[in-house]
Simulated assay, not measured.
Amino acid sequence: MGGWSKIPEGLVRIIEEKLDLYQDKVKCRCVCSSWRLCLPKMPHQKQNLLPWLLVPLETKAETSFGFFDPLEKKVHCLKLSDPHKEMMFRGSSHGWVVNLDKNNSICLINPLTGAQVKLPPRTKFPDVGNYRPNKPGNEFGLRADTRPPFLTLSKDTVRNQFLEKVVLSSSPQSDEDFVAVAIYGVSSWLAYYKRRDNKWSALDRSNCCDVIFYQQQLYAVLCDGTVMVYNIHGSLQKKTVVSKFSKGLVSRYYLVESSGGLIMVYRHVRCYSEIDLVEPDSRTIYLYKTCGFRIFKLDTSRGEWDEIQSIGDDILFLGFNSSFSMSSKNFPGHAANCIYFTDDSILFHLQGIAGGFDIGIFNLSDGSIQHLPGYKTCESEISIWPPPVWFMPNFIN
C-alpha cells in the first residue's frame, strides 16, 4: 500500500465533494501536502459552523457556559463575565444575548467580543408598582392588571418567570437607533426601550407569545393567536390586527422570517404527570414534551394565514432566541425542512420542576422528533438550568 499522498487526484476530489462540513473540508486538506495542492482553495466561510447552542457547563467551582455545535457534536468553552452561575439568558438577536442577572439587571452581551450594553433593569418596567430591596423575599410589587392591588413577589421569582424574552431591531453596536422589545409581566405584556431611555415604556397590555422585527415593523403574536403590527418608528402604537387562531394552554406561537416571507409556527406541547409511588407523600411532578408543529404563511395580499406542509430548504430555530431561519444550502450538514427547538416553557421552570430538557429537531417531512445529535437529555432525571438558547453571531457588527 502506498501512502495517502499516492491516492489519485481525481479520487481525492471525489472524497472532498462528499464532505458537508466546512471544518471537515479543512481537515481533508491537512492530510498531506499533495491533497492540499490538488484541492481548490477554501473560501472564508465562518458561518458554516453556525448556529450554535449556548449551554450551561457544570464544573466543580462554578457554572460556566459553552457553545454546543450540533454538527461536530462538541462543546466549545466560552469565557463570559463573572459570576457565571448567576447568568440567565432571555434573548438572542443580531449576535448579542440578553442576560438577566441575580439582581434583575439586564445587559446585552456579545459572547464573541465580550462587549456589553446595559439596558434599564427589571425594576424599570411599567408593571412594577413598588420595589423594596430591604424586604428579602418580598422585594417586588407587580401589577397583574392596569390598577392595584399588586402581587408581592421575590426578586428570584420575578427574575425566573416574569421576563420571557427580549428582541432587538438591530445590533446596538452598529445602530444608535436600535429598539429593544420585551415580553414581560404576569400577563405577558409588551414594553420597549430606545437608546438613552432610562426606563421601559408600555407598548401593549395584551398577552403575547412572540415578537419579531420584520420589514421595518414590529409583529407580535398574542397567546390567542392574534397577530398585531406596530410601527417601530415614533410612538410604536398599535396599527392593525392580521388574523387569529386558538391554541392549548401549554402550546406556543412563534413568528419567523423565512425565505418565503413571514410565517407563524404553532408548537404543540403535551403536559403529563408522574407520581412517585415509592414515596406516597411526594408531590406530583408535571412534565411536558413537544409533540409537533404546524406552519402558517402570511398572504400579504389578503392579510390572512394559509397553512403549509413544508418550508422547503429552510431550517427554523425557535426558543428564547429571536426566532430565525436559514437555508440548508448555505449550511451543509443541517437537514432541510426541519425545526430546531429549545425549551422555553417558563411556567415549569419557575416552579422548580424539571425543566430545560425539551430540546430537539422536528422533521416536517415525516413528523418525527429526534434529540440534537450528541446532546441527549432525559426529562425524568435532569433539569438544565439556565435553559439553553440558540445563538447566531453577526460577524459584520
Rank of each mutant, 00 (worst) to 15 (best):
W4K: 09
I7Y: 04
K25H: 05
S33I: 11
H44S: 12
Q47Y: 07
P51H: 10
T59C: 01
G66Y: 11
F68N: 04
E72I: 05
D82F: 12
M88I: 05
G91R: 03
S92M: 00
G95N: 05
N103V: 09
I106Y: 00
T113V: 03
A115D: 15
A115R: 14
T123R: 12
K124L: 11
N138P: 03
P148M: 00
E164F: 01
E164D: 05
Y184D: 03
V186D: 01
S206D: 07
V211G: 04
Q215H: 10
Q217D: 13
L218M: 05
L222K: 11
T226S: 09
H233K: 12
K238I: 05
K239D: 14
S251A: 09
R252D: 10
Y254I: 10
Y254F: 10
L255T: 12
G260Y: 02
V265Q: 07
Y266M: 12
V269K: 02
V269R: 06
Y272V: 08
L277N: 15
V278H: 15
I285T: 08
G303M: 05
N321T: 14
S323F: 00
S325H: 05
M326Y: 02
S327R: 11
G333E: 03
D343T: 07
S345D: 06
I346S: 09
L347I: 13
G356L: 01
G356V: 04
F357M: 07
F357T: 13
D358N: 14
G374F: 01
T377C: 06
W385M: 12
P393Y: 04
I396L: 04
